[in-house]
């Protein structure tokens, strides 16, 4: 019994430490400006004026940035699946490219993204993709591909290939087999990869910071600009963080099982 209490105590401490930043930022976002600057930690009353100020800030279209994040994350997720699924199938079933291709693709996941940032910036500048949705979407598709291909490949490798072989003997075309047999069977893997891709795109910062300015900027960039623009308006900064952070957290709560599946598939394979 005593052991159980100790275990619970340790678990609660661990959780408290991990969740402390979020609790603190939530608290700050509901605090009035006066209470923040006078150093009051636990406010006498809560207010939503910070949220109001963020969403209706003059010259700062936060709602637009929110919309940008939704568009860019969704479309890059979709694009990444469309491109990675056929590649993963080919690599899993026919060993296309062998170990070399796998290693090349995986090495991109390991390299620091800053290596690609400057050339992509200049490339985008010369072909007019700077500060466009499509530009950022393309970048996210590419940098989500390694993990997507890897996870889908290991998922497809675990599927029995007998059904596909039987369909081939029955005269099914290769494309039809992929579309109507393999794709539905891979659905759980695709769900897991989609979640990972969506979270990765929503949470990405470096490319969004470099490749967008006003038109296509995402919420994370907008929130970080708040830090410089609003220097000591901590309440507004906290509210902007809350707004940017909430969608992926809610999303993760809804699909946690799939997320865990994707994370572990990406790291271990049996």
């Amino acid at each position: 019994m005593k052991r159980r209490i100790v275990i619970w105590f340790v678990i609660i401490i661990m959780m408290a430490i991990l969740l402390l930043p979020m609790f603190f930022i939530a608290l700050t976002s509901f605090k009035a400006y006066g209470e923040i600057v006078s150093g009051i930690m636990f406010p006498s009353q809560l207010t939503i004026e910070n949220y109001f100020n963020v969403l209706y800030a003059p010259g700062f279209r936060f709602v637009d940035f929110l919309l940008n994040s939704i568009i860019i994350s969704s479309l890059s997720t979709l694009g990444s699946i469309l491109v990675s699924f056929p590649a993963a199938y080919s690599m899993a079933r026919f060993k296309t490219g062998g170990g070399t291709l796998s290693s090349y693709i995986f090495s991109i996941r390991l390299l620091p993204p800053i290596i690609f940032a400057l050339p992509i910036f200049i490339l985008y500048q010369s072909i007019g993709l700077l500060d466009t949705h499509i530009g950022l979407i393309l970048t996210y598709i590419v940098f989500n591909l390694p993990l997507s291909i890897l996870v889908l490949k290991s998922f497809i490798e675990e599927l029995p290939s007998e059904i596909e072989e039987a369909a081939l003997i029955d005269g099914c075309s290769q494309l039809k087999i992929i579309a109507s047999i393999v794709f539905p069977l891979t659905m759980p893997g695709i769900a897991a990869v989609s979640i990972l891709n969506f979270l990765a795109s929503w949470n990405e910062y470096l490319f969004a910071l470099i490749l967008t300015f006003k038109k296509a900027a995402t919420v994370n960039v907008a929130a970080s600009l708040f830090v410089t623009a609003y220097a000591i308006r901590y309440g507004e900064i906290a509210a902007s963080v809350m707004i940017s952070m909430l969608p992926p957290i809610v999303f993760m709560f809804l699909v946690q099982r799939n997320l865990v599946r994707g994370l572990t598939l990406g790291a271990l394979r049996r």
Binding site: M14, M15, L18, L19, P21, M22, L199, W202, N203, E204, Y205, N220, V221, A223, S224, V241, S244, M245, P248, I249, F251, M252, Q256, L259, V260, L263
Partner: peptide, 11 residues
């Protein structure tokens, strides 16, 4: 416990 994983590093 998994919540921090859903938070953007920038945030």
């Amino acid at each position: 416990i998994l919540t921090p994983l859903a938070v953007a590093p920038a945030l």
